[in-house]
Simulated assay, not measured.
Amino acid sequence: MHTPQISVVVTMFNEEKNVEPLLKEVHEALSQLDYELVLVDDGSTDNTVREIKRLANSKTKLVIFNKNYGQTTALAAGIHHAVGMYIATMDGDLQNDPSDIPMMLNLAITENWDVVAGRRANRKDGFVLRKLPSKIANYVIRHTTKVYLNDYGCSLRVYKAQIAQNLGLYGELHRFIPVLAKQEGATMTEIDVKHHPRIHGDSKYGLSRTFKVMADLILMLFFQKYFQRPIHIFGTLGLFSFAAGVVINIYLLIDKLLGADIWGRPLLLLGFIFLMAGIQLVTTGIVAEIIVRTYFESQDKKTYKVKEVFTGE
């Protein structure tokens, strides 16, 4: 099988009007490179698939999902089907500019970076709904994970293939790819890239994802710090919880010996319920995530089903 220098993975969901300009821009920008274009249709309900099949050439590969699985799963499928020595990822809405890819690839090769991440220097999005939440999220992620990138929301990145193929993408962790790469020991740098306003279609993302991002951040911090030593977090919480219980019980015992009636104090019962429920919910979520990963990785299962793989001629 021929191994191109770079595979460009693009996730698509209801982008029929963007297909033709996207393919044109990618092929023009990468004409001097040995490349393949891997498009992943994430269950589009419009004519995205038909447009891609109509315009695809011999460098184009289309992976078609049987339903919508989400951006992270689409990226995982695209990376799985990519065969290049390097893998570039970008969105299909034409806000990323494929003309930046040769420059990023050259930087990765000449300076031997495992990951070259794009940074949208002049972002063409609304401030309140897009830029401000993004700035806050970037700040929080940067300072909690200690992976100091400025723009976690930019999908345009170039990876060495072995790094991209070992990321372990599940759920909605695509925004944390730099953190996942760092856990694999990857070296990375960040560089300014162009950013364009969306011309066709609507954004699939908004403020509603804020709580999902925060939940995923908790999961990432767990995997980053405690995945191989979970007793350090659960043991610490358990000891603090146990110590608090001992102190409360000693206090109640003394109070009882002094003649007080300690049975059924509402505030004590409510506090105990909230404390235990919070610990159980967080730990159950983390344990469930580990079980999901074990299920898929131990049996080499995929988190998606491919309806068809189409290669242009």
Rank of each mutant, 00 (worst) to 15 (best):
K302W: 01
I291C: 03
A288F: 07
I291E: 03
P266D: 09
P266N: 07
I273V: 09
K301W: 06
T294E: 09
L268W: 07
I291K: 12
V309A: 01
G259L: 04
V292G: 02
F296L: 13
I254R: 11
L267H: 05
S298D: 07
G285A: 06
I262E: 00
D261Q: 15
V287R: 10
Y295G: 09
K307T: 00
A288S: 08
P266A: 08
I262K: 12
E308T: 01
K302G: 02
Y304Q: 01
I290G: 03
Q299W: 04
V309D: 00
I273G: 00
V309P: 01
L258P: 03
Y295K: 11
A277T: 08
F274P: 08
Q299M: 04
A277V: 05
G259H: 07
F296D: 01
E297Q: 10
E308K: 05
K302C: 01
A260Y: 13
L268M: 05
Q299D: 10
V306Q: 05
I273A: 11
A277H: 02
K305Y: 03
G285T: 09
W263T: 14
L257D: 02
L281A: 11
F272M: 14
E289G: 04
L269G: 10
R293M: 15
Y295I: 11
T303G: 10
M276T: 15
G271N: 15
I286P: 15
D300P: 00
G285N: 14
D300S: 12
G271I: 04
L275K: 05
K256R: 15
F274G: 11
A277M: 05
M276E: 15
L281C: 04
A260F: 10
L281R: 06
V287S: 02
I262R: 13
F296G: 07
L267W: 04
S298L: 08
L258S: 04
R293P: 06
I262F: 06
K305D: 14
V309N: 05
A260M: 09
D261C: 09
L267C: 03
Q280L: 14
D300R: 13
L281E: 13
L275P: 09
T294A: 10
M276P: 01
V292L: 15
K301C: 08
I290R: 14
L258G: 08
T283L: 06
S298A: 10
L257N: 03
D300M: 09
I286S: 12
T284Y: 10
G271S: 12
P266S: 14
S298Q: 07
Q280G: 11
T294F: 06
L258I: 05
T303Q: 05
I279V: 08
R293Q: 13
L257Y: 03
V306Y: 03
G271T: 14
K301I: 14
T303E: 07
P266C: 14
D261G: 08
F272D: 11
